[in-house]
């Protein structure tokens, strides 16, 4: 029986979808069977980030309303053999099209078939959030080192404590900018973790390559040498129960001479 994990944040745009796609891909690369569920009804993105947007026939609302069977709606990611699937969100209905018990039913149907069901939660704490947590066993709370994002994460942790899942929520801090943390203009990792008082699952650096790879429909984890990719791989290993020390953040000399030289060779 697999585990259902909801990826949530409260605040929008902090990287829930990016995180879902990358953790899912990293787990698939480790040989796990993963189903990604996009619950951002009306604003679906996960398909685009995975490069699967042109293959959608049915969506989760079709399944909930009986227009399609669950296996018909699942989109297979051919790059990973039989390991990675996506259950897309509906694009032309609103958030009220789904009810928590319908979502839970679908999650429960997926769990025996997969090692992980990762649920990409929409921003906010209303119906969409309720739907996304309904079938989950665990939660990853994503934040960035900004005060507004941390406040919203705090709100979400509070809600998760009021309706506890089987496992306590864990924290992922995304878009870390080492230079800003070092000069004190951003909250640092310890500060955020200590403030929220939940276990730290991982940290991901801010990297333009995350955006460009998302645009190409190829999650960053598919590159081996990238720091953000390393961060997501570490998270996947921790989910699998491995003990992986927190990544040491090295300032990357983006403008250095050798960086430029090597980037000439990496083009194309």
């Amino acid at each position: 029986m697999g585990k259902a994990i909801v990826i949530t944040s409260g605040k929008g745009g902090v990287g829930k979808t990016t995180t879902s796609a990358n953790i899912g891909t990293a787990l698939a690369l480790m040989g796990k069977r993963v189903c990604l569920m996009d619950l951002d009804i009306g604003l679906r993105n996960l398909d685009v980030v995975l490069g699967l947007d042109n293959r959608i026939i049915y969506d989760i609302v079709d399944v909930a309303e009986g227009r399609a069977k669950l296996p018909q709606a699942l989109v297979k990611d051919k790059r990973f053999d039989d390991k990675l699937y996506l259950l897309p969100a509906a694009q032309n209905t609103d958030k009220t099209a789904l009810q928590p018990d319908q979502v839970k039913e679908i999650v429960d149907e997926l769990k025996p078939e997969y090692d992980y069901v990762l649920i990409d939660c929409p921003a906010g704490i209303e119906q969409g959030f309720m739907n996304a947590v309904a079938g989950a066993d665990a939660a990853i709370v994503v934040t960035t080192p900004e005060i507004s994002a941390v406040r919203d994460a705090d709100r979400v942790v509070g809600l998760l404590e009021q309706h506890p899942l089987t496992e306590a929520p864990r924290l992922l801090i995304n878009r870390i900018r080492l230079n800003m943390m070092q000069d004190g203009s951003m909250m640092d990792i310890d500060e955020i973790t200590h403030h929220l008082g939940i276990e730290l699952l991982g940290i991901i650096v801010d990297d333009d390559a995350v955006i460009s790879t998302s645009n190409q429909g190829e999650p960053i984890v598919m590159q081996t040498e990238n720091q953000a990719s390393q961060g997501y791989r570490n998270v996947a290993r921790r989910l699998e129960g491995q003990t992986v020390p927190l990544m040491k953040l090295e300032p990357q000399e983006e403008d250095g001479f050798w960086h430029k030289v090597s980037s000439w060779f990496h083009r194309g």
């Binding site: 406040r151 919203d152 705090d154 942790v157 509070g158 809600l159 404590e161 403030h195 008082g197």
Partner: peptide, 25 residues
């Protein structure tokens, strides 16, 4: 206890508070 953003704890009588109240709690 930790009173988080958006949470409101309502009590009766005098309270000796030993926990933490986050911004918005």
């Amino acid at each position: 206890k930790v009173i988080r953003n958006g949470q409101e704890v309502a009590m009766q009588g005098d309270v000796l508070f030993l926990g933490t109240i986050h911004e918005g709690g």
